[in-house]
Design a binder for these strands. Structure first.
Length: 264
DNA sequence: ATGGCTGGTAGAACCAGA
């Protein structure tokens, strides 16, 4: 029997502050699995009960005080929890699990990288590149079907940003970051599901700054969030959607959810 | 018009996001 599996990813910018819109999204879209980034809470205060009440009883948490933090909540069992420290400093930026349908899910929050695109002047930029290099090594050694999702904090293509030329020196769209992301992609022949379903040069953004007076009017977006699949998993992807309307909800995250549906 | 905003935590003339 063939059925489908729907997986979502969302940088929520505080899961406690935004539990109401998380609940609304889960009720309306009903993914089987939701990967969250920037939960901004320790595991003890993660809103576990509210999500269990919506049917997401399987929860893997990797939080820390104040910043960062990732989680996977699921209607289906999650096995073999892994938590890689690709930042090499203890920050909570990855959580992975195996699914009964035969592939693993890895949920990642790549460091933003600070303001200056130079690792000598700005150590955070170096940490971002090093994080991606460690992910690349891991991708190289990966020997099982996998789905890699999350906030990569890089918009690689010209059509992934509102203005390519203006953003060439802005961290998230610099040529060095794009090259580094390309090496990561090549290390496991990852398929960019977003662009498989919404091919370039079509506009595709997943993040809009809080600082715009009217984010929808200026539409200065970037595609910072991604869903990448290894070849066997990509073959099973049958639909992909960007939930741009969530950016206009009350007290929104600055990111919107992405959803991919798979044949399993 | 790359910060004009945002949340967490402390109780900031803070930090971090991107």
């Amino acid at each position: 029997m063939t059925s489908t599996l729907k997986i979502a990813t969302w940088n929520i910018n505080s899961v406690r502050f935004r539990i109401d819109i998380v609940s609304r999204f889960l009720a309306e879209e009903a993914p089987d699995i939701l990967c969250l980034q920037e939960t901004k809470t320790v595991d003890e205060t993660f809103p576990a009960e509210a999500l269990t009440a919506l049917g997401y009883e399987h929860q893997l948490l990797c939080g820390q005080p104040m910043h960062h933090g990732v989680a996977i909540v699921s209607k289906l069992p999650l096995h073999n929890r892994s938590c890689f420290d690709w930042q090499a400093n203890g920050e909570a930026r990855h959580i992975g699990a195996s699914l009964d349908c035969g592939f693993r899910v890895d949920n990642v929050y790549v460091p933003a990288g600070g303001d200056v695109a130079d690792r000598e002047q700005n150590p955070k930029f170096g940490q971002k590149l090093d994080f991606l290099a460690r992910m690349t090594d891991w991708s190289h050694d990966l020997d099982e079907p996998a789905l890699l999702v999350g906030d990569f904090n890089i918009a690689p293509l010209e059509c992934d940003v509102w203005n390519h030329k203006q953003l060439l020196k802005v961290v998230s769209h610099t040529p060095l970051e794009v090259e580094t992301l390309d090496r990561l992609q090549a290390a496991n022949d990852w398929i960019d599901l977003g662009r498989k379903f919404i091919p370039a040069p079509e506009r595709y953004y997943s993040w809009w700054s809080y600082r715009a007076k009217d984010h929808g009017k200026s539409d200065r977006g970037r595609r910072l969030d991604h869903m990448w699949a290894s070849a066997k998993v990509a073959e099973r992807a049958i639909a992909h959607s960007v939930h741009e309307h969530c950016r206009s909800w009350l007290k929104p995250s600055d990111h919107v959810p992405l959803v991919t549906q798979f044949r399993v």
